[in-house]
Amino acid sequence: MKDKIKNIFVEGAISPSKIAESIAHHQSKTEIGAHNIFLGQVRADQIDKKKVSAIEYTAQIDIANQVCHEIREAAFSKYDLSCMHIYHSLGKVYSGEICFFVFVSSAHRTPVFDSLTEIVNDIKAKLPIFGKEFFEDQSHQWKVNQ
């Protein structure tokens, strides 16, 4: 599967209707029997009585897309997947909104269960994306992934 490098980034939050549309697009692909979806949502973390109200994402986009492409190709060669869609937000995403969407499909459930965890973990660990967490009083701190 030698696809060209895709741009995973979208400006702002990923809307639930975009996710629904993405699911609907697969109804014509009748060889698929299983989908698995990960949605990352901005959490209103509470730190020293201050609550996170939004995360502003920036990225080294060229490297992030290249590394994501490598993760995608590795997953396609390791697992029997029909298709894979990956989107990540840039800019401000407010708490409760979706900032990260990974969607894998296959003929059967095992490849989608096994691959999704790996893809999500790899993206969080390897893509140069930076989250700036804003509190309600507009002060901020830099997000640290667990």
Partner: peptide, 10 residues
């Protein structure tokens, strides 16, 4: 040259 601090996507 790009200087990249710890990654925190997702």
């Amino acid at each position: 040259i790009d200087l990249l601090p710890p990654f925190s996507g997702g």
